[in-house]
């Protein structure tokens, strides 16, 4: 990936750089494939269907709930994971 196309995002409070337009699922799964806790068992979950229908990859983007599989990285984007009630927050 070419240097000039990387952008900065804030991932769980940590500044990170990645390719502009990178799907958030790629960005998140590279860190760990699970980034959410299931509601009752608190089991780790991440991307599953990859097409916006299973809601397993939920994150918070700029304060709003979002499906990671539908989002692509933008400069300054704030991404928060494990925001679900099962996360013990």
């Amino acid at each position: 990936m070419s240097e000039d196309r990387t952008i900065g995002v804030i991932l769980d409070g940590v500044p990170s750089r990645c390719a502009e337009g990178l799907p958030l699922t790629s960005l998140l799964a590279a860190r760990a494939p699970g980034w959410r806790a299931s509601p009752r068992a608190g089991a780790p979950r991440g991307m599953f269907c990859g097409m916006g229908l299973c809601f397993e990859c939920m994150v918070e983007v700029d304060g709003r709930p979002a499906r990671a599989c539908l989002e692509t990285a933008r400069e300054g984007m704030k991404i928060r994971t494990a925001t679900g009630p099962g996360a013990g927050s």
Partner: peptide, 21 residues
Amino acid sequence: PGVIGAGAAQRLLKTGTGALP
């Protein structure tokens, strides 16, 4: 985590950096 749909794998390969993350 890591078990995904075949279509999801295709999406990761086609739309991301071209590598599985």
